[in-house]
Design a protein around this nucleic acid. Structure first.
Ligand SMILES: Nc1ccn([C@H]2C[C@H](O)[C@@H](COP(=O)(O)OP(=O)(O)OP(=O)(O)O)O2)c(=O)n1
Ligand SMILES: [Mg+2]
Ligand SMILES: [Mg+2]
Length: 713
DNA sequence: ATCCTCCCCTAC
DNA sequence: TAAGGTAGGGGAGGAT
């Protein structure tokens, strides 16, 4: 019964949220990084107001962590570089990332940094009550805002969303689309708070949300690119194009000495990989026709961020995420994925320019980027819309004598020319090192980790930069090594044996980290893309009062999922439903407008009778599973449906391309040209998938409790 | 041992 | 206001 009643644990199991050092990660390039640890400087003691108090600073704060550390020490407190449940009294953070808020445990107290400032100012220990950030906030939004304002570093002016400056980009859609199609009576209005009702109860919500979600864009675009590369491999014409391109390049090559000297690639199995990634992709695209803007800090956000035409202290409270920011902005510590809020509040980057999403542009540029690379080789593994791995071995052999740096220099030039956007690339003998090389190369650069320098290179790489290693895994390591601050690969090499790593992280992950920290990576490009799951998840705007409302939404999700299965030409035999329910002690409304806040998650799967992509099956099975959870409908904050155990509907040998290739123009809402390809319709085929009632569900006695999930008051 | 379910984590 | 999606690796621990 492992999972089941998980409603309670949720984040639990996470035990210690420990040293997460998100700060570390963020501070990557910030001067005040250094060792926040025992930087035992002799701070002058000024008071003792913080006696007995210890803090752990997480994320970006104003003033920055080392300043807070100094203040704490000067006033009798203790500063911990790593979180330790027993020792730390308070977290200090002004904007924890969403992922971490969800991990907070009931007893964790997160306090805004202003608390420290105010305490010092008044020279006494103030109650933290008004500075606590992620605690129950009874209800009203107003209160939420108030609460927040308190802790804002410099009393920000909240107003200023001033009048809806209408137009301004294309703010079309549902504004008026009232029409209230069918079922739901009047969506609009009603509802306690007149929050303009833009939540999942609105019939247009799903469509609107997906159209605007950058994360949905990223996911669907990545899949589309994988499919695109895959399909291109099957086209013989393309091989001819590649040949032509290579010859052309060969002819115009101006070889220099290094090209002739570059031998390597013996007939051994020496490989040379390239990892290539567009620089601050969204920003570069958005400014590709106004490159002169690029010198100033820029971010891509939904919030109009305040153009600060008027001198005034702009900015307000904004939980809008910065999707991408350029390098000028990064100078100030701004990072992708941050909330706009704190950043703008800081005087120095008060004039950060916020630009809207240009999905069509992303699409176009992404295609140009891919097509440019693909015109030279098909040894490509798509990673995302702005990033890929390339096995250059064959190409370099073909063009020899040629130094790979010469090639990627030309390639990047061509990409720049085609897209008007910069990119960076890394070269190395394996994928891991190539990827790390890219990081080093950015922005607008290239870097080759050459043969004799691999150990030196990997030794000094940040552990967090290793692909697949995030805050959680790093923390597990840190917990097992209290004396040192674990930061670079060299330390893993020296401080942990393979066995230790396996014990701490598990068999596979232990081995992987062991290898990676030594620069070892035996992976090869995956050239065969086979989807393993297709799903839809919505964890935003989920606010229902009744199960019927939820049912209506599930209907929409099912239809969307059905379309995705159709488009991917897949059917699945297993269906998983995942829900996110507001944590008991989490505020009704989280900091982020319509966000899901801190939740407890659970999932449940069912084995279907046959491979299916049928809407009604999906819908009914989902509802069935949903009823097996026990939750208060009003507390639901997220739902997801995943189909797994996929099987392609094409006869493998039979012609795939229905209407011309599924070119790069993938997912519905992001298609650029290409009129609709009609994804829906046709349900005619397939072996009847009745709502597979009994569902093989195997054993599982499933305590058939009160299946309902009533919205109780 | 190995499989299965229910997570958790990471990445873009 | 805000648009916190999703695929895939893998671990824990019970079932087989
Ligand atoms: N938390 C994130 C991370 C990324 N993205 C989007 C915007 C990015 O432009 C794009 C590509 O991600 P990258 O990690 O490649 O970041 P950038 O291209 O923006 O910057 P870099 O120059 O570091 O590659 O994905 C996002 O929306 N949210
Ligand atoms: Mg990039
Ligand atoms: Mg990228």
């Amino acid at each position: 019964m492992a999972g089941r009643a998980s409603a309670q644990r949720g984040d639990n199991g996470w035990g210690e949220w420990g040293g997460y050092m998100a700060a570390k990660k963020r501070k990557l390039e910030e001067q005040f990084d250094k060792d926040c640890m025992n930087n035992v400087q002799q701070h002058e003691r000024k008071s003792n107001i913080f006696h007995g108090i210890s803090i752990f600073v997480d994320g970006h704060t104003e003033p920055p962590a080392d300043e807070l550390k100094k203040l704490m020490i000067e006033h009798g407190g203790v500063y911990h570089a790593y979180y330790s449940k027993d020792k730390v009294t308070y977290f200090i953070s002004n904007n924890l990332p969403y992922a971490k808020i969800r991990k907070l445990k009931p007893n964790d107290k997160v306090v805004g940094s202003q608390w420290i400032i105010d305490c010092i100012k008044q020279n006494k220990l103030l109650p933290t009550h008004d500075y606590e950030m992620y605690k129950d906030i009874t209800k009203s939004r107003g209160q939420t805002e108030l609460n927040f304002k308190r802790i804002e570093p410099m009393k920000i002016i909240t107003s200023d969303f001033n009048v809806p400056n209408s137009d301004d980009e294309e703010n079309n859609s549902f504004e008026k689309t009232s029409s209230s199609s069918s079922e739901t009576e009047e969506i609009q209005a009603e509802d306690d708070d007149n929050l303009s009702a833009l939540n999942a109860k609105h019939p247009k919500f799903l469509e609107t949300f997906l159209k605007r979600s950058r994360l949905h864009y990223l996911s669907s675009a990545a899949v589309a690119k994988k499919v695109y590369v895959q399909d291109l491999r099957k086209k013989s014409e393309h091989r001819l194009l590649i040949e032509k391109q290579r010859e052309e390049l060969k002819n115009k090559l101006q070889r220099t000495e290094r090209d002739y000297l570059f031998k390597l690639n013996d007939e051994k199995k020496d490989k040379i990989y390239m990892h290539i990634d567009m620089d601050c992709f969204f920003v570069s695209v958005a400014t590709r026709n106004q490159p002169e803007l690029r010198d100033q800090p820029i971010a891509i956000t939904h919030s109009k961020g305040k153009k600060s035409t008027t001198s005034n202290e702009n900015q307000f409270y904004s939980r809008s995420e910065i999707s991408s920011c350029n390098y000028a902005a990064r100078q100030y510590g701004v990072r992708n994925g941050m909330y706009l809020a704190q950043e703008l509040c800081r005087n120095h980057n008060a004039k950060i320019l916020c630009l809207p999403y240009d999905y069509e542009g992303f699409h176009i540029v992404s295609d140009l980027f891919y097509n440019t690379v693909l015109s030279y080789t098909l040894d490509v593994e798509a990673v995302s819309c702005d990033e890929m791995y390339v096995d250059l071995t064959d190409l370099i052999l073909y063009l020899k004598p040629l130094h790979p740096l010469t090639f990627i220099s030309l390639l990047r030039e061509e990409i720049q020319l085609n897209t008007k956007c910069p990119c960076s690339a890394g070269l190395a003998s394996n994928m891991l090192l190539a990827r790390l090389a890219t990081r080093q190369a950015k922005p607008n650069g290239q870097f080759y980790v050459e043969k004799g320098y691999e150990q030196e290179f990997i030794s000094k790489q940040k552990i967090l930069d290793l692909p697949g290693i995030g805050l959680s895994l790093l923390d597990k390591l840190q917990q097992n090594c209290s004396h040192h601050t674990i930061e670079i690969c060299k330390q893993i090499q020296n401080l942990f044996s393979l066995e230790q790593l396996k014990t701490i992280l598990g068999k596979k992950q232990g081995q992987t980290i062991y290898d990676m920290s030594r620069g070892i990576d035996m992976r090869t490009l995956s050239k065969d893309y086979l989807p393993k799951s297709i799903s839809i998840d919505i964890n935003y705007g989920i606010r229902f009062q009744t199960f019927d409302e939820l049912t209506l939404f599930i209907k929409q999700l099912s239809l969307e999922l059905h379309k995705r299965l159709k488009q991917a030409k897949q059917k699945g035999k297993q269906l998983t439903v995942k829900i996110r329910v507001r944590s008991l002690n989490a505020p009704i409304e989280p900091e982020k407008f319509m966000g899901c806040g801190r939740t407890d998650d659970s999932s449940r799967l069912i084995n279907l009778h046959s491979y299916t992509d049928d809407v009604t099956t999906i819908e009914s099975e989902t509802i069935k599973l949903l009823k097996q959870f026990h939750f208060i409908v009003a507390d639901l904050r997220g739902v997801g449906i995943t189909i797994t155990q996929l099987q392609s509907t094409t006869k493998t040998t039979h012609g795939q391309d229905i209407n011309g290739t599924r070119t790069l123009f993938e997912c519905n809402q992001f298609r650029v040209s290409k009129p609709a390809i009609s994804i829906d319709n046709d349900d005619t085929n397939q072996n009847a998938d009745q709502p597979s009632e009994s569902s093989v569900t195997r054993k599982r006695p499933i305590q058939q409790e009160q299946t309902t999930t009533i919205a109780r008051k």
